[in-house]
Design a binder for these strands. Structure first.
Lengths: 208, 208
DNA sequence: ATTGAAATTGCCCTTGGGGACAATTGCAAT
DNA sequence: ATTGCAATTGTCCCCAAGGGCAATTTCAAT
């Protein structure tokens, strides 16, 4: 999958400030997309593009923190760099705890911003890769039938087929059948792969 | 293992302020231990006690951020709550990114502090449990011989004994032998448990 | 009523893994 | 020199898992 260039989205209602940031980033070679409000950013559906967001906090309409929360709720894992002129410590702490990758203050030093953007973009690249594989796996998991899920859970907990059979009140042959089907559906060829999938899916696993 | 009560360590060189914080925390029912400097805190070997640390940043000698770094370097995962009168945004961002659980400013509201301490202590309790089990597992892992580690890695990657044997240039019987020994050493009784251990140890695992 | 997916099970054969019993070799420490 | 651990391998046997072939049942959708 050949991705387009990473895009830096600059969301700030202060036109002149925004333009200057945009200019700075373009000069540094980034693909940049500017938005005068959170709503405009959302409408552009730019949230689906990869890269990062440089976000002002105080804006008319939806403010930066609210936008961050909104994006989090939708599992939209674009890295966010806050850039604000009226931030305080409490705000910055909250933002970082909520997952922002950085919190800068206006006026911002060129290097601080560029380094923040660089980090954000590389962290985004990593996240994308992980998200992709998790989504794919998740989709496969949801294709399992109830029975297959039951068997799956017992298998990854190290139970033997015969024990699984008696726990579910079915024959061992049936367990084998479900087991083969779920391995097929999850696209794994070994028990090791199956358990690795279970871990990635955050399923409960007992070691003994 | 019956643990003693969680202890809140208050590290601040400002005597009167520190005393008032200590009083507040004691009144709230916490076991508290006070220190006038980072060095004093370290010397008290209190770093090994569980609970959390309420830490001033600006102090003579080792300052708060440096102490935090020092504790991090030693894997001493005591949750740290910064409490400072002269903090700025950059400082708070750095502290939180470095793992501090909170960053408060003087004067602090009673409820903010108490809620931060409550969160810190419960997060500590969780960390302790995880650390314990990881350390135990890690110790077991380091008891494996080189050969056992090689076999371990190949097993968790879903390789068959015969393939492992040819990759290592040894007989299948030998692989079985190593395999049995490492299962024993890692205290697991199923392949599922073995792989779960590998995951916890952060070993590389391929799914296909 | 027919079709189809899902669950179920039986029989049988092959392959893989666990483990008992036993032995050899090499290296390092005492 | 002796002891001891680690690595190595062989032969058997048993049990577990994978999978082919085949069939029945049930439930829901068309």
């Amino acid at each position: 999958m050949t991705l387009p260039n990473p895009t830096v989205h600059v969301v700030d209602d202060d036109d002149s400030f925004r333009k200057s940031i945009v200019r700075l980033l373009r000069a540094a070679g980034y693909e940049v997309c500017e938005h005068a409000s959170a709503a405009e950013f959302l409408l552009s559906r730019a949230s689906h593009a990869h890269g990062c967001v440089v976000l002002d906090i105080r804006m008319p309409g939806l403010n930066g923190l609210e936008l961050q929360k909104g994006l989090n709720d939708f599992d939209n894992a674009v890295p966010i760099i806050f850039l604000t002129g009226h931030g305080d410590i409490q705000m910055s702490v909250r933002a970082i705890k909520a997952g922002a990758v950085d919190f800068l203050t206006k006026p911002v030093e060129r290097d601080s911003l560029l380094s923040a953007v660089r980090n954000a973009i590389s962290s985004d690249a990593l996240n994308r890769v992980n998200d992709e594989s998790l989504k794919l796996l998740s989709a496969r998991f949801h294709n399992l039938t109830e029975r297959e899920v039951s068997v799956f859970l017992l298998v990854v907990n190290g139970k033997l087929n015969k024990n699984i059979a008696s726990e579910l009140g079915i024959s061992e042959r049936t367990v084998k059948s479900h087991r083969a089907n779920l391995m097929e559906k999850l696209q794994v060829t070994s028990l090791a792969g199956l358990i690795a999938s279970a871990v990635q899916l955050n399923l409960p696993i007992q070691k003994n």
